[in-house]
């Protein structure tokens, strides 16, 4: 409760300060409150009068866009054609979104997990899955994501999403998944 309320109060106080210079008492009474480091995410409440602060409250519980089905960051899989390792254009917007997130959150890390269908040698498929992971890594790299934020690995045919033997099942398995380090 305190964690939520104090920043809000601080914002109220700061916004009151920025718009009204004739009530110094309120400011002084808050000088021992937490530092400004917790405030940037709600800091845009600034220019309005302190009296209408109710509109600032909903901003506090931030939804992780990576968990929001409406966000392009929610999409995590890049699918590949049979024996193909190039990232199709339809995945660019989604990868742009992940690149944007990674650039905005330099501490975020992603593991790019390449996968194949089950046909053929396990080790060869591991290397093929790696090619698919590296393909996504290169695209994100071109989009400006630091190499240090990415690790391309492969599961080969070891973690089939669809264990069927139809072409649809194989297609579902030929993919690279984007998994964040904190997930």
């Amino acid at each position: 409760m305190n964690k939520i309320l104090w920043p809000v109060l601080l914002v109220l106080t700061l916004s009151a300060c920025s718009t009204t210079s004739d009530k110094p008492v309120a400011v002084e009474s808050r000088t021992t409150q937490p530092t400004a480091s917790t405030t940037p995410s709600t800091g845009t409440a600034g220019t309005t009068n302190a009296g209408v602060s109710g509109s600032a409250l909903p901003a506090a519980p931030v939804v992780d866009p990576r968990k929001d089905p409406a966000s392009p960051l929610y999409k995590r899989s890049v699918f590949f054609d049979f024996d193909k390792f190039d990232v199709k254009d339809e995945y660019r917007p989604m990868l742009e979104a992940h690149a944007g997130y990674l650039k905005a959150n330099p501490n975020a890390r992603v593991i790019l997990q390449g996968n194949t269908d089950e046909r053929g040698s396990r080790e060869y498929n591991l290397a093929l899955g790696q090619k698919r992971a590296e393909a996504v890594r290169r695209v994100l790299g071109v989009m400006g994501v630091s190499d240090a934020q990415m690790e391309a690995i492969s599961f080969g045919e070891e973690k089939l999403r669809n264990t069927g033997t139809t072409e649809e099942a194989h297609a579902e398995n030929r993919r690279t998944d984007i998994v964040y380090g904190d997930e």
């Binding site: 080790e123 591991l126 290397a127 790696q130 090619k131 590296e134 690790e151 391309a152 690995i153 492969s154």
Partner: peptide, 27 residues
């Protein structure tokens, strides 16, 4: 190493292994 590490093979004298790494480029 960073990336995938796989496909070990022993040298005949047992002193070394050939392995596949992806730390520099693809496998």
């Amino acid at each position: 190493f960073k990336g995938s590490n796989s496909a070990p093979a022993w040298s005949p004298d047992g002193q070394r292994l050939a392995v596949v790494l992806t730390r520099d480029e693809a496998s």
